[in-house]
Simulated assay, not measured.
Amino acid sequence: MGLTVGVIGLGRIGGFHADTLTALPSVAELVVTDANPAAVAATTDRLASARAASDADSLLNSEIDAVVIASATPTHAELIEKAIAAGIPTLCEKPIALSVAESAEVVARVADTDVPVTIGYNRRFDPAMAAARSAVDAGELGFITTVRSTTLDPAPPPAAYVAASGGIFRDCAVHDFDTVRWLLDDDVVEVYATGSNQGDPLFADVGDVDSASILLRFARGTTGVVSVTRYNARGYDCRLEVHGSTDSVVAGWDPATPVRNMQADCAFPAAEPHRFFMDRFAAAYRAELAAFCASVIDPSTTATSAPCTAQDALEVALIAEAATRSVATGRAVLIDEIRDALVPAR
């Protein structure tokens, strides 16, 4: 008999997760809810296995086996805590919360329970990025000199989303931060970030930037280089390069990579460019949700997957906060500077 999985939030990513979960053999039924009744009706009309709950509290009391939280970021912390209190295994989309302090409080609560909580950093499940991690783990690349992670969005998100996002480092670059930490199995100790606004003045109006580059210094000496922008009209470009002393590997350089190759007589890349993160990472999302469901059925399976823990997500939040502070001050920021300023968890 399959799982009954709750989905809280049925916007862009929540609706995608609902569709993906329905197609998994391990899932028998969905219970769904959203602040927008039209989104709930659209989902239950589209998916025969989905039934509606009036709100999140009702959903968490619906005898579900697991829950996926895909609602707006300000709701994440409270919903994680409610799910933990109900003893329900949880996968929550990133981030845990908008502030580092609130994230730390949630992490402390998670540490006091046996209820599994996974944060949705799906790139860990991208086949090519996972292969790059395996190559690093196996020592195939020697010592790692540089890791480069790139996320170029084809167009800015809606204005309301930008205003509530927490900024490009907390909203967009966090995926890159998690990927490079996980890839190297190493901690960032110092961050320098710079950014600019050349597009819609909306970003500057809310204290954000539309494009940024971030240098990360890792504890074992590797340099991380992260590049992000809201403006890449050619398509959604997300790739990873790992440069080692004996070899180098890349992930995300596929025929649909949205670049024009200026090398004469070279047809690569030849496919229609990726247009959005959900087509670029469809396989990764499927693998992430399948691994989550498998871990609910048999918790020992987490040993063979790559879930992002709440503690991992807190480390990513510290990097994002340091990058935000670096842009504001024009200087490099030590991670310990951010960590030491945390308000102790209640």
Rank of each mutant, 00 (worst) to 15 (best):
A328D: 12
A271I: 13
F281Y: 10
A310P: 03
I80L: 12
R234I: 09
R230T: 13
C266F: 09
S58I: 11
G207M: 10
V327N: 03
D312W: 06
S227T: 15
D205N: 12
R239C: 00
A53L: 02
A97V: 08
A282W: 01
P127F: 09
T113Y: 07
Q263Y: 14
R123D: 01
I8T: 02
A97Y: 01
V40G: 02
D185F: 13
L215K: 12
F277V: 11
T257S: 12
A233I: 12
F143S: 15
E78F: 14
F143N: 13
L98K: 11
I214N: 02
R275V: 07
A131E: 11
L24R: 04
L289N: 01
K82V: 05
A212S: 10
D265T: 07
V206G: 06
D57H: 10
V316A: 06
N36G: 10
T229V: 07
N122M: 10
T194V: 15
D279S: 11
D336V: 00
S149G: 08
T223L: 14
D298T: 08
F203C: 05
P25S: 07
S300C: 13
V225E: 15
C293F: 03
A39M: 13
C172P: 08
F268D: 07
A317Y: 02
T222L: 06
R123S: 04
T150E: 12
S62N: 07
D247K: 15
G120C: 05
D186L: 09
R339G: 01
A38N: 14
S71T: 03
S245H: 07
R286H: 09
P273H: 05
A38Y: 07
R286A: 06
G142Q: 10
V225R: 14
P158L: 10
D208F: 02
G15C: 04
A155V: 14
A83I: 04
M262G: 11
E78C: 13
G199A: 09
L240M: 09
D153A: 11
A70W: 03
S103A: 13
N61S: 13
E29S: 11
R12W: 04
G244Y: 03
T113K: 14
Y236L: 08
D176F: 05
H243I: 12
D55L: 09
N197R: 10
V191N: 03
I119A: 04
G166Q: 03
V162G: 03
E288W: 07
F218W: 08
D210E: 09
T194K: 15
R339C: 01
P269V: 08
V68G: 00
A173V: 14
V343T: 11
F169V: 12
T146H: 15
P156L: 15
A256V: 06
V27Y: 05
V67H: 00
R133M: 04
V228Q: 04
